[in-house]
């Protein structure tokens, strides 16, 4: 498994969040999650402008094997989605932490980031 970038925070349900310099938060799913899912073939992204609540469902990812909800690690408004994934969902398998991001949130309360798991804590979750 590839190394987890140090600036990411996680939900135990395998979503990552990264606080960007402009104060927005980018969200995706972990390398471990894409590996568990196998070949990803369909992604349903939220609508831009939608209000989401931390740990609420925000997107859907489907591999050949199964459909899974994707939860947002942080509350706020969806300000951008990675619409390239609609045509090339397999990007998530190849680049879960970069090109395979799902959506960006304008957070209501950025302090929610401190409730999330560090890369080390998340790695422990994956090992259990």
């Amino acid at each position: 498994m590839s190394e987890i970038p140090g600036d990411l925070k996680f939900l135990s349900s395998h979503e990552w969040a990264r606080l960007e310099d402009d104060g927005t938060v980018t969200v995706g799913i972990s390398d471990h999650a894409q590996d568990l899912l196998g070949d990803i073939v369909f992604i349903e992204l939220p609508e831009v402008g939608k209000e989401v609540e931390a740990e609420g469902d925000a997107a859907i990812v489907e591999s050949v094997k199964a459909a899974s909800d994707v939860y947002t690690p942080i509350s706020g408004e969806i300000i951008e989605v990675n619409s390239a994934l609609e045509e090339q969902p397999e990007t998530v398998n190849g680049s879960p932490y970069d090109d395979g991001w799902f959506f960006k949130v304008k957070p209501i309360n950025v302090d929610e980031m401190s409730d999330l798991l560090s890369p080390e804590e998340y790695s422990e979750v994956c090992e259990d």
Binding site: G38, K65, N93
Partner: peptide, 8 residues
């Protein structure tokens, strides 16, 4: 074995 990498 469910797959050896990519099932596709």
């Amino acid at each position: 074995p469910i797959n050896y990498g990519s099932q596709i």
